[in-house]
């Protein structure tokens, strides 16, 4: 990435679109503090002194223990985060999962992503970073995930190729290409900008 200048307001919903390898995941990892930028800086004026406390990330690796059940995963993270583990059944129901004994290893990819979203809802982060939240989802899953994203309390940044599903959840969008921000605008204009980029690259 180079010359990326981005501000995100509290409670803002931002959509990041762009072709594969354009830097969406890298940007999310930098914003999450898990990846240190080699140049430049990131500041979190609205977050805690240690911003990690207020940041939730749902990356390609969704952050679960495969051998545990969905409920046990949420219980483990609640204990670690020192938060109330009580509403686990309700949390799982929000994302369309049941609190059974089945190990997450037996879940489909879509079910795993829904569980990761339940974990984000449980943590209630002030800044939620979602990398391809609709990947490998069936229509029911997409509806459940959309509902869960709307329920997130703070600022939400979504990186997704599935503009038609992600744009209605966002207010602003940026288009990235080759590690740079090529376009910024309203989320409902994102699909047009995306098409224009494809056209420019001769892909449409």
């Amino acid at each position: 990435m180079a010359r990326v200048d981005l501000e995100v307001a509290a409670h803002e919903r931002l959509l990041i679109i762009g072709p594969n390898g354009c830097g969406k995941t890298t940007l999310l990892n930098v914003l999450s503090t898990l990846l240190r930028p080699s140049a430049g800086s990131v500041s979190y004026p609205g977050l805690a002194k240690n911003p990690r406390k207020d940041i939730g990330l749902m990356g390609h690796d969704i952050g679960i223990y495969e051998d545990l059940s969905a409920a046990d995963n949420l219980r483990v993270f609640a204990r670690m985060s020192d938060i109330d583990p009580a509403p686990i059944r309700a949390l799982l129901a929000t994302v369309g999962l049941e609190a059974g004994d089945q190990a997450v290893a037996k879940y489909s990819a879509g079910m795993r992503r829904r569980l990761a979203l339940a974990a984000l809802l449980q943590a209630q982060p002030a800044l939620a970073l979602l990398d391809e939240p609709f990947a490998q989802m069936d229509p029911g899953g997409i509806a459940g995930v959309s509902k869960a994203i709307k329920a997130l309390p703070g600022a939400v940044i979504i990186a997704s190729h599935q503009v038609q599903h992600a744009a209605p959840l966002a207010t602003r969008a940026i288009l990235m290409d080759c590690g740079q921000i090529r376009w910024t605008g309203r989320a409902d204009q994102a699909e047009a900008a995306w098409r224009a980029l494809h056209h420019e690259r001769g892909e449409l």
Binding site: I55, G56, L57, H60, D61, I62, I64, D67, F77
Partner: peptide, 17 residues
């Protein structure tokens, strides 16, 4: 491996643990 294979370690780091 159980910590890194599905990204659980990253989640723990963000708690932060």
């Amino acid at each position: 491996r159980i910590e890194v294979e599905a990204g659980a370690l990253s989640k723990l780091l963000l708690i932060p643990i």
